Computed example of a mutant assay.
Amino acid sequence: MDPQIVLDLYGQGFYLIVVIVSALMVPSLVVGLIVSIFQAATQINEQTLTFLPRFIVTIFAIMHLGPWVLTTLTDFFTQLFIDIPMMIG
Rank of each mutant, 00 (worst) to 15 (best):
Q79S: 10
I59V: 13
M86G: 15
G32L: 01
F76A: 03
T42A: 01
L33T: 14
L70I: 13
T42Y: 05
P85R: 01
L52D: 04
V19C: 01
L29F: 14
L65W: 07
P3S: 10
G89L: 04
Q47D: 10
G11P: 08
A61N: 00
V26W: 10
T74F: 13
L70M: 06
I84K: 03
E46N: 15
I84H: 05
M87V: 14
L29T: 14
P3Y: 03
T42K: 04
A41W: 06
G11Q: 13
V30E: 05
R54C: 03
Q79H: 13
V6Y: 10
L70K: 14
S22L: 15
P85Y: 05
Q47G: 15
T58F: 07
V35C: 00
Q4A: 10
P27C: 02
S22D: 14
F77S: 07
T72S: 06
L16M: 09
P53I: 03
V26Y: 05
Q4H: 12
E46W: 07
S28E: 10
I17N: 12
V21M: 06
Q47P: 14
G13R: 08
L70D: 09
S28V: 12
Q43I: 08
L52A: 12
T42Q: 04
L9T: 13
Q12I: 06
L33F: 12
I56W: 01
Y10H: 11
V69Q: 01
T50I: 10
G89Q: 09
V26C: 04
V31S: 02
L70R: 10
L24P: 05
V6F: 13
V6C: 02
I88H: 07
I20F: 00
L70E: 10
Y10W: 15
T42I: 06
D75K: 15
F77E: 10
T71I: 03
I62C: 05
